[in-house]
């Protein structure tokens, strides 16, 4: 695994939301209030794209996609790309 991907891995797993984690989580849920499943899915899709762009770094985005796709199983160490 490259050093870059290693960095990405540690960024993904680390606690970065600090004391506001609960607030932010609630804000995320609140954004979906009153939406049916498809509107909710559409909101998530927009949010994912916005966050993907905000993160920007290719290795981090790829690692995030792998992590999400692996259904909480940690990606294998050489599963780069």
């Amino acid at each position: 695994m490259t050093g870059q991907a290693n960095d990405a891995q540690s960024v993904l797993g680390a606690c970065r939301l600090g004391d506001n984690a609960d607030d932010l989580y609630e804000t995320l849920l609140g954004a979906h209030a009153g939406l049916d499943a498809s509107a909710s899915a559409a909101l998530n899709a927009r949010l994912v794209l916005i966050l993907m762009n905000a993160v920007g770094d290719e290795a981090t985005v790829r690692a995030a996609i792998r992590a999400a796709r692996a259904d909480r199983v940690p990606p294998a160490p050489d599963d780069d790309r």
């Binding site: 559409a42 899709a45 927009r46 994912v48 794209l49 916005i50």
Partner: peptide, 15 residues
């Protein structure tokens, strides 16, 4: 879903 999301965001967001 993602295609529509891209189109919905495009007007305001250059990315």
């Amino acid at each position: 879903l993602f295609r529509d999301a891209v189109l919905a965001l495009a007007e305001d967001m250059p990315f």
